[in-house]
């Protein structure tokens, strides 16, 4: 196992009753890089995410994270190792305040999360750190707002702040700019660039200008298998990739 790779999969396969969604995928994520996973709809990108975080059980193959085989671990265990994912739709806690959203993530490390006899005032010392994280995504002024009333772009920013709160080594972002207006996309791209310092990011993304702008390495999936891999300039000229995308709107951006 090379130490350069934070995460490696070997022949990762997922079969649903006769349909192989992910078929022998070998991924190697270089530590400290921003790695994109792209491909036409139904290529198996989100399934790969679900396998890496064990939201789905693996049919065969291995997942190695920081030299440990994590193939048979539970989702919460993997999260505690520092692999934190986001979801395609925004993953916030809508009826908690913006600040509480971040604090829930911070409080895990205190080890008092089963203490039902303690007052939640014991969490107050986390407020400063929570405000600091909100500051990083320009949400301080919304701290006491109920999250459900935030605009969509802000929710995605909050989601990133919450993810940062658990200080992940590897962030898995599932379409972080999906459904966003133009200015919001720019803001999120800058945010990802900012938070990727000292971290590794693996992202599924459809917006090719985001991928071109942000990512060091791109893996193209099609029908559950790796079609091509390399930097954007190389991948975007690959004949097979062009063929896989023919007729699909994503290609227009390439």
């Amino acid at each position: 196992m090379s130490a350069d790779y934070i995460l490696e999969t070997q022949h990762l396969t997922k079969a649903f009753r006769g349909f192989t969604a992910v078929d022998g995928v070998n991924l190697q994520i270089v530590r400290g890089s921003i790695h994109a996973l792209i491909g036409p709809n139904g290529a198996g990108k989100t399934t790969v995410f679900n396998l890496l975080t064990k939201f789905l059980p693996v049919t065969s193959g291995r997942i190695v994270y920081n030299g440990h085989d994590i193939t048979s671990e539970a989702p919460a265990q993997i999260a505690r190792r520092g692999v934190i994912r986001s979801f395609q739709i925004s993953a916030v806690f809508p009826h908690l305040t913006v600040m509480e959203n971040v604090r829930v993530a911070l409080q895990r490390k205190l080890g008092t999360s089963f203490h039902f006899w303690k007052s939640d005032a014991s969490l107050a010392h986390l407020n400063d750190r929570a405000m600091q994280l909100l500051g990083e995504v320009d949400l301080e002024s919304f701290a006491d707002t109920e999250t459900v009333s935030l605009p969509y772009g802000r929710k995605r920013a909050l989601e990133i702040a919450t993810t940062l709160a658990v200080d992940p080594e590897l962030m898995l972002l599932d379409e972080p700019t999906q459904g966003m207006g133009h200015e919001d996309v720019g803001r999120v791209v800058e945010l990802i660039r900012k938070v990727s310092a000292n971290r590794t990011v693996l992202m599924v993304e459809h917006n090719m200008s985001v991928v071109a702008n942000l990512c060091n390495t791109i893996t193209v999936l099609a029908r559950g298998s790796v079609l091509a891999e390399g930097p954007y300039a190389e991948v975007s000229k690959n004949a097979q990739v062009l063929e896989a995308y023919v007729g699909s709107s994503e290609m227009e951006a390439l």
Partner: peptide, 16 residues
Amino acid sequence: SPFGQVLKSIRENEPR
């Protein structure tokens, strides 16, 4: 309580 905070987060969004 700290436990109650986690409960509420589970109510709001379990996968998260």
